[in-house]
Design a protein around this nucleic acid. Structure first.
Lengths: 177, 177
DNA sequence: GGTGTCATGTAAACAGTTACATGATTTT
DNA sequence: AAAATCATGTAACTGTTTACATGACACC
């Protein structure tokens, strides 16, 4: 459950509430967790127990009270330790490939429709990612290098989908109707 | 839980035991489930209850008895229904991007090491995929088109990793040490 | 004598999703 | 009048992983 580390990362930029974190994670293209309440609020309790964050309750008139979470020195150290930890290969779960594997029972028309539907989905993802990036809800820019890294993260995601589109074109060309 | 459908797909090629299915799924590059016992044997019970498969117990001298599962007509119909169902976008969970997002606190050397480690991981994945493909434990080849589809599935995975390597090169070039 | 393969299954834990619950304010 | 936003949290379920359990045989 490394959403804890993602939360630590976000909190290393600025202090936020669980509600804020939830929105940031839901809107993020690369923090791939759904960002549901259960995950966020549980993680924050854990991080609190481990001493990686502290919180300050802020009562507000005419609004529910907030808990503003702030990273501690131990939290910052743990974040760095984790960032340096062993890189893992990407987890690529392509449901579509499993469908395609058993698609030989389909007619040419059905197969073409299936492929077209997937292509449509991929194009939609690209649009959504670009839209998210333009609106740019949350992007730290503490140094030039950090701005570059975040741009490259965005590019990575776009490149993945575009590689998928290239493959789809080749797939389509190879299917003799 | 669409591992059920993947199992139906495999059984549509030939009748197999849970143990066989486990090995096939574990060795498969695109059937992304871990293929642990719990998943396989539970799925088979479910598929049996739904009437999508039947099984035949085969007692063996000097070996544990087998249950050989065979797909039914309803199973074949369900498989086709699922193959035609709405295509989903790929699920790309890149742990590394989350690390990179908070990597600005690292020194140039540390960052380079992190990137090099990831590149190594990706290269390793490519080798493993190609090795799996060469050994080719399970690949249906009932028609020319099916052979083509399975080749393209393999190519898709390789292309994904290669796109990652291209991006890594660009990332490395853009980092001014 | 230890490890690996064949073959079945269960238990416990962890991760993740959807939905529920509250309650005030603001927007449509 | 209904829906969305702010803000917290819980409950129930599904999915997934790791580990346990059995037992015979084959290989080194």
């Amino acid at each position: 459950m490394s959403i804890n580390h993602a939360i630590l990362g976000i909190l290393s930029c600025r202090s936020l509430t669980g509600y804020d974190l939830k929105k940031i994670i839901q809107d993020s293209p690369f923090m791939y967790w759904s960002g549901n309440n259960n995950q966020i609020y549980k993680s924050l309790v854990e991080l609190l127990e481990e001493g990686y964050v502290t919180n300050e309750v802020q009562h507000q008139e005419s609004s529910p009270s907030k808990k503003i979470y702030t990273i501690t020195a131990e939290g910052t150290a743990e974040l760095k330790r984790w960032v340096l930890s062993a890189a893992e290969p990407p987890e690529l779960k392509k449901h579509f490939l499993v469908q395609l594997a058993w698609a030989d029972q389909l007619s040419s028309e059905e197969l073409n429709t299936l492929i077209a539907d997937y292509e449509e989905e991929v194009r939609m993802q690209i649009l959504m990612q670009k839209e998210k990036h333009k609106r740019g809800t949350f992007a730290p820019a503490r140094t030039k290098r950090e701005v570059y890294l975040w741009d490259m993260i965005h590019e990575n995601i776009i490149a993945s989908y575009e590689s998928e589109l290239n493959w789809l074109e080749k797939l389509r060309n190879g299917i003799t109707n």
